[in-house]
Design a protein around this nucleic acid. Sequence first.
DNA 1: TATTGCATAATCTTCATAAAAAATGCAATC
DNA 2: GATTGCATTTTTTATGAAGATTATGCAATA
Lengths: 304, 304
Amino acid sequence: MPAASGLTPLQRRAAREIIALVRREDRPAGHHLSKLALARVVGTSHNPVEGALAHLARIGVARHEKDRGYFLARDARLLGSDARKLSPADDDPLYRRILDLRLGRRLPDTLSETALIRKLGAARAPVRRALARIQQEGWIERRAGNGWAFLPLIDSVEAYEDNYEMRRIVEPAGLLGPKFALVPEEFETLRRQQHRMANGGYRTMTAVEWVDINATFHETLARWSGNRLMHQTIRHINRLRKLLERRVVAGDPGLRARQAAEHLEILDAIGRGDRKKAAALMEKHLVRARRDKARPDHFTVGRR
Amino acid sequence: MPAASGLTPLQRRAAREIIALVRREDRPAGHHLSKLALARVVGTSHNPVEGALAHLARIGVARHEKDRGYFLARDARLLGSDARKLSPADDDPLYRRILDLRLGRRLPDTLSETALIRKLGAARAPVRRALARIQQEGWIERRAGNGWAFLPLIDSVEAYEDNYEMRRIVEPAGLLGPKFALVPEEFETLRRQQHRMANGGYRTMTAVEWVDINATFHETLARWSGNRLMHQTIRHINRLRKLLERRVVAGDPGLRARQAAEHLEILDAIGRGDRKKAAALMEKHLVRARRDKARPDHFTVGRR
DNA sequence: TATTGCATAATCTTCATAAAAAATGCAATC
DNA sequence: GATTGCATTTTTTATGAAGATTATGCAATA
């Protein structure tokens, strides 16, 4: 049973982002959820946000008052299980199925679109949509004439190592780039986030939130490099990494706290203007993170 | 008037690759063009290759003998103008128009698919195909709800600088990676190619061929790194670079020869197993290449 | 024994239209 | 003066069938 049936994908996404936002900012019960402000955050018109808010009211996350709008029903930090229920993993079932099939070695390296449609028992258009997303993520490509070919980017320990090696090469270099410039208010936001995490905030966090905060940290620094191609590349690498870590065990709490501490050190160095130090710390951080995670048993195949 | 009307895109592509192949290998008149072997090279079935060969016979590049197949009509090195006529630039007219419009600042940063369809006066399906390609190349992305947003990756001097900076960071690191291993026969092929180019071979080459040989050189080295993500990333960066260099002047012959000489130096260092030296040479090479090309006047906007 | 040339089968693209979803506008309300 | 709630407009997605293209098989031939 889907966690939030009856919603359009965009409404689900809006609902997810609303919860993520209030949790990031640790809003208390009673906080006003302004339709227009939220629409700006989500990047859509206010229409789908209305649907999302209505859903949040149905599941008891928000209260509705006629002509006044929606308000948070409980403190945001108590909404962990709701955040989990709306997790992006369920977003596009077809995408999920293809990913699971592929990771489970149940799809050949190359196959025609029609063959995939038969296998999934789905219509062409949605299958194509899922394929487009996968192509965008970079682990499938069209073959010259017909059909598609999976690329070996997500389904092996090696891919995992490759991913970390790329990060180790690119991210420290980004900190040293000629156009690097931090954005003060983003700097403060990152520091606050990582600080909270280092001091036990991870206990109320879902796994997805943890991963997202991590990704945001690294992607923000990449953006500060002033090199847009580098930012895009890091985003791409991170997306792939999320797929690779899909089956990785939750990660013990000590790990989370230590990572946050390392992130804070890097931020401090950047804040002092000591980019060389920051780059060195970043490299060490990435080497250590790889060692902590890249173990063969994480690549066992299973359902869920 | 299109250079090769009546051909399907795949047939055009096959024709192009056949000519590129025989020119790369400098085949003489009379060389047999085997349908099956060519199909393997192009990556399709032999059907579209047949169409391509028929076309090559029509335009006088190949001769046909009943039940014996097709044969090269002239020495491959004399086919420069034919190679130019089949150049990939004409492949998807819609893609070209969007690119031109965007580079000419005639498309807003964000617009709906329908608006684009109206502007181009084309049907939805082909527009969507072109957009998918652009999305793949990374300079457009879907917005949350509706529409598309252009990313600033192809339309400024800065993007050009960013591109070279990324190459400078990634490519030398690739040569130093832990899994680096050259492929002997590819090594010889690269050496032969670059040697020919350094010794005046560039005179019979089209601009597109020059760019392709360059790209092949760098992408092959990236592949040798053993890091598939790195290889993919370099390929992506190169594709963007081709767009950026679209309007760059043809490049004086001396430049071509010098670049080839630098490529040969790098290959020599790799061949000796001196990867540190190779990486240093690569970095110098990229810095120099950037200096030679990144001049503002290349970003003048014009038709064709 | 491998390759060609052609026939047949499978796959993909296009296109028009209906239905779903998102964007937008604005009077009523706080 | 800003925000909500709802009506209207615009955009996108789904669908299915015809036509185009590509894949495949194989007898005839070099």
